[in-house]
Design a binder for these strands. Structure first.
Lengths: 351, 351
DNA sequence: AAATTCCAAGATAACGTTTCCATGCTAAAA
DNA sequence: TTTTAGCATGGAAACGTTATCTTGGAATTT
């Protein structure tokens, strides 16, 4: 069943049917009603690929994340998809698993489907592979690491604010031997987090000890392994700041196995504030980086670019704030006080 | 840039270019090479929508899940997508949030994109809304609840095996006051789990007490609330079996707040065995229902149906087993023994 | 050597829409 | 009343492929 069938039955031309479907205002209301009733009656749905072919607009956005099984991402996918649907867009999702091969195949598939834009949520990996997209002037939005180019937007994350709050919070609890477990250092965002940590420490006169900085990989297993290495090192930290929440969860798991009690013997702070953080035992203090806000920014960056006729020469920049959310995984050094959950740097409370 | 451009430059017809791209074996290798080198040189990618339009095959499968932010689903999405890509399929993902409205709009969008099949992973909700798809003879695959129809496959889950193991495990640890927190009872799968529990109890001569059966909603918050209700009830359970892992995590969180130690004061068993389960404190004993296997079954069910020319009159049935994985959230009643992690009912170990 | 078969390559019709352009009717202007 | 303008509708080209049908040259058979 196609548009011609509808046209025949409604005794109008296909052009009119098309106009009725697309709610072109000039079409006679009487005709439109006739068309619509035939459409309803037959249960006709327009063929998107034909539409896309002739109109040159696929109404598809690509969304590339590094690992959908990492709880950080599903929320992003959820929000991104919801907004997309509201704007009559579809999304093509790829979880690259940080594999350049998959990234490449993903880009290829997206180009073949003629996506109108792509949001890249890999936090600083292999932008080289996106050459093909840039070449075709497909609007892109990056987090942290995008180049300055027309049609390429960037969401800059203000890591410093939240991490500074975390470091100062720990310092206020008398911690000085503060360890930092990084993410995989090939990720630009992981490096940025580490640097924010170093700077925050120096700001308050604490010299970060290289022995207390170990590399993780943003997974729970990585957190466990990194913490094990930390325990085997020369200095025993009293607090650990982690590059993301999964790492922190790994640390909590490992310290449980090692008989180290949190927060009594060790304070732990995560980063991202995934939903799960508040369900940890004890609930995890974490630096919030709103996933839904990130998704919203990304979508609207793409949409704006699609609708803009003359692109800005250097794309647009967006900024996402971070801020500490206190829960129960930190305490006074060798003490037992448990601060109530509340967020710094923002008037509203969570939950 | 289109196929004609390639044809012109390679000095062949568009038909030959098309044949070369699709690796039709009869084309002269010399010509094919000429075509391919032009394609490489220009960085040409075929337009999928044009292909789909004329061939009548979109190479898209729909995937409907109930809640992507529920950690149970990302793994499914991951595996499903990976296999799909290997078979040159794309996936259209919808997370309905159990909202019939979103389900309906999702179905509509999928039909408009002319999906070749849809996997419905909502575990028993609102199949009525899929009428449109059935009408169009789109292959479907359900979990638990699909009707017997041509082109509709079903994955039946053998809940009884795993739940029986869980109940018997608890009984072996001398538990008799075993509570069960159900899922939302409008989900057929939640009802099935509950029934498996009741049956497993009766099998070993334990009469399940209605006061120990409370309804949850498969979320952490629901688990917390349900457990609170349980504590307020007339009988204090010594063990809790949960309809899914999220519920169990909620129970663990709530019992932590209530000063109840797991597994010393309370044994907890989850269901699904999501990856997170092993990172809980203590690691959660759970009934495994392999998410990757489920995804694999679903994909291949669709693929088989697409490639089948004459559909079976009642679709095909697949079965997915469940089995208990022991960790550290259960122990002898009022005892402290911690069994090592190992899985029953399967020779291989996990991790 | 002529007739027949075979098969690779080209020409072109489809696929289901949108969009451009032509058309003819109604309403406004002369 | 006649001419012009305006605008809703219809006709048909276009989008970029695949698939069908045709063609012509080489290979095989007689």
């Amino acid at each position: 069943m196609d548009i011609r069938e509808i046209a025949r039955r409604a005794k109008v031309s296909t052009a009119t049917v098309s106009r009725a479907i697309n709610r072109v205002p000039t079409v006679n209301p009487l005709l439109a009603k006739r068309v619509w009733s035939v459409i309803e009656e037959l249960g006709y749905y327009p063929n998107t690929q034909a539409r896309a072919l002739v109109s040159g607009r696929s109404r598809i956005f690509g969304l590339i994340v590094s690992e959908i099984t990492n709880p950080f991402f599903p929320e992003i996918v959820q929000v991104f998809e919801t907004i997309a649907v509201q704007h009559r867009y579809e999304i093509l999702l790829t979880s690259t698993g940080n594999d350049p091969q998959r990234m490449e195949s993903s880009v290829r598939r997206m180009i073949e489907r003629r996506v109108e834009g792509v949001a890249i949520m890999t936090f600083g990996m292999e932008e080289v592979l996106l050459e093909d997209l840039k070449l075709r002037k497909v609007p892109l939005v990056f987090v942290d690491v995008g180049p300055s180019r027309p049609r390429v937007s960037n969401i800059r994350i203000d890591y410093l604010n939240g991490i500074r709050q975390a470091v100062q919070h720990l310092a206020a609890l008398r911690h000085e031997k503060i360890a930092f477990i990084t993410g995989p250092l090939r990720l630009k965002s992981a490096v940025a987090r580490q640097q924010a940590f170093l700077r925050s420490m120096q700001e308050i006169g604490l010299e970060p000890d290289p022995a207390l900085i170990v590399e993780g990989d943003h997974t729970m297993e990585g957190g466990m392994a990194a913490f094990t290495r930390l325990l085997a090192g020369p200095i025993r930290p009293t607090a650990v700041l982690c590059s993301n929440d999964m790492t922190a969860i790994g640390v909590m798991r490992e310290s449980h196995d090692a008989g180290i009690s949190i927060p009594r013997d060790l304070s732990v702070v995560g980063f991202d504030d995934i939903r799960l953080a508040q369900f940890m035992l004890p609930p995890l203090t974490s630096v919030q980086m709103s996933q839904s806000e990130l998704a919203r920014l990304a979508f609207h960056a793409l949409l704006a670019e699609v609708e803009r006729e003359t692109p800005a020469p250097n794309g647009t920049e967006y900024v996402l704030k971070t801020s500490l959310v206190l829960r129960e995984s930190t305490s006074l050094i060798s003490g037992t006080s448990k601060p109530e959950e509340k967020r710094l740097g923002s008037p509203s409370n969570r939950r």
